[in-house]
């Protein structure tokens, strides 16, 4: 299995994400520039947090037009696994790969805290290594993480069991306490909490490691084996 970690101008979690998936979880992985136009040879794409293109206009609104996005849409349409974290989640909603949008936190504060969550669906490529309803703690660090979707979209998301992570104590106003959800097909996940910041005891916890172990498990036997 080989993972691509995308790097946009203004990404600031790309190196952390590479460290988590490669050095800690043990997958083969490399950084891929947003200016690249190909994702050939990759089995997993990770879209990191940060402030892509300065968050101009809206978070993720400019990134969705980056050269790599055409390849990313094709990759996702072909069933490839895509994980967007924080700004990566915002980019995936702007690009239409995930439903809904991320709006300003109701408190209008940038919140940087460890946040208790529940894994409400462990039947996905991103969560299969967590026990059902597992309580975990992951750091959040965002000003615009307030998940919004209209009532019909929200009902469809719930009916399809697309919510994977819910906040235990909703910090930002997200509808239905949604912290992370997949697309309808289940191969694209976006989440505001940072699993890559919780993969070593030294960093305060290892509750995020399960996300990367789940993806490694889901892509076992993938075409591009680790060297």
């Amino acid at each position: 299995m080989k993972a691509a970690v995308l790097t946009f101008p203004g990404s600031n979690c790309d190196d952390d994400l590479l460290w988590a998936v490669k050095d800690i979880a043990g997958a083969d992985a490399e950084l891929v520039s947003a200016k690249s136009e190909s994702l050939d040879g990759f089995d997993l794409v990770l879209v990191p947090g940060g402030f892509s293109y300065g968050d101009y206009l809206r978070s993720g609104a400019i990134a969705k037009f980056a050269p790599i996005m055409t390849a990313l849409k094709q990759f996702a349409d072909n069933g490839g696994y895509v994980l967007g974290i924080c700004n990566g989640f915002q980019i995936l909603t702007e690009a239409g790969l995930l439903p809904g949008a991320l709006q300003w936190n109701t408190s209008l504060e940038f919140i940087c805290e460890p946040e208790p969550l529940k894994v409400v669906n462990n039947q996905t490529a991103f969560s299969n290594q967590y026990p059902e309803d597992q309580a975990i703690t992951l750091p959040i660090a965002h000003g615009e993480g307030n998940y919004y979707a209209d009532a019909d979209t929200l009902a469809e998301i719930e009916a399809n069991h697309q919510v994977v992570f819910r906040y235990a104590k909703n910090p930002n106003g997200s509808l239905n306490d949604i912290a992370g959800l997949t697309n309808k097909a289940g191969n694209v996940l976006g989440m505001m909490p940072h699993p890559e910041r919780a993969v070593e005891a030294l960093l305060g916890g290892t509750d995020g490691l399960g996300v990367f172990e789940s993806l490694i498990n889901a892509t076992k036997g993938a075409a591009h084996a680790a060297n």
Binding site: P99, A101, Q103, Y148, T153
Partner: peptide, 8 residues
């Protein structure tokens, strides 16, 4: 396509 996010 760009100036507004029609989801919200």
């Amino acid at each position: 396509q760009m100036l507004a996010n029609v989801n919200m």
